[in-house]
């Protein structure tokens, strides 16, 4: 079953066609990778899917339901979660609090309970905290949970962002360059974490530059160049695709 389907999606900024007639679909519980040179429109594509940007034309279907141009928080509530290329944590909050924000859509206490917490709301807070703590220790950062997020090293911040996304109990997770700026060891850790997340039944759509990471974990790979989809297939086929090699390594004739 396709959990996500994108059809003829277009987005321009002024005269630049950042995403040009892109169509693809993501199968449930698969890991699909999107690769392409800088400026290929990968992050724009993510922003369109997660609702941060409005589409020009085309449609995005999440479980057969159109979601394009809905506000981000509504898309998040449907079960789609994302991370950001340039990590966006809540720097003024601790790791635990960051992950607890991820539980927002799984808890209900409203404004009245904010002013005068009733027993049910207090119980909910306790559950929220426990669930957040469980996710933090599952990802191996339990010792950091009371530190301020902004003070952590880059690699740890990525894991906190992962934890926050997982706390939402999403059905599909959009990862925007999870290995950017990480060393080899950290990249391997991230790869393991991603596989672990998939094993829990979560579908993953991932943007990545690190080819070794992509080739190891993804089921299918899609290649974008200047906003256009130029190839799609399993990792081995993509590695041998002439068009892809040309885009990445340059044209011999040039």
């Amino acid at each position: 079953m396709n959990i996500l389907e994108v059809r003829d999606l277009c987005k321009s900024f002024g005269g630049l066609r950042a995403v040009d007639n892109v169509s693809f679909s993501v199968k449930q519980n698969h890991i699909k990778a999107i690769i392409g040179p800088n400026g290929a429109g990968k992050t724009t594509l993510f922003n369109l899917i997660s609702g941060s940007l409005k589409t020009d034309s085309g449609s995005i279907l999440y479980k057969k339901e159109t979601i394009q141009n809905s506000p981000p928080y509504k898309i998040a509530r449907k079960g789609l979660s994302r991370t950001f290329q340039n990590i966006k944590l809540f720097g003024n909050m601790t790791v635990l609090e960051n992950v607890m924000v991820g539980r927002h859509i799984r808890s209900r206490a409203g404004f009245l309970n904010a002013i005068m917490p009733l027993p049910r709301a207090r119980h909910e807070e306790k559950v929220t905290k426990e669930k957040a703590e469980a996710i933090i220790s599952m990802l191996g950062i339990g010792n950091l949970s009371h530190l301020e997020a902004s003070g952590l090293p880059f690699g740890k911040q990525r894991i906190v962002e992962f934890a926050r996304s997982l706390a939402m109990e999403p059905e599909i997770l959009l990862l925007d360059e999870p290995a950017a700026g990480l060393n080899i060891q950290e990249t391997e850790d991230i790869a393991k974490t991603i596989s672990k997340i998939r094993d829990q039944g979560i579908t993953i759509l991932i943007i990545e530059h690190d080819m070794s990471l992509i080739m190891d974990i993804s089921d299918t790979v899609m290649v974008l160049s200047y906003g256009v989809k130029i190839a799609e297939g399993d990792p081995k086929t993509i590695q041998r695709d002439k068009e892809v090699i040309k885009v990445y390594l340059g044209d011999d004739d040039a």
């Binding site: 928080y73 924000v101 904010a114």
Partner: peptide, 23 residues
Amino acid sequence: SRAGRALRAIHGSEEAAGASGIN
């Protein structure tokens, strides 16, 4: 409270708060 946490999240990053399902 949960609402207070949401407010602080908005302070930290409005985009990430939205992506976490906060209106």
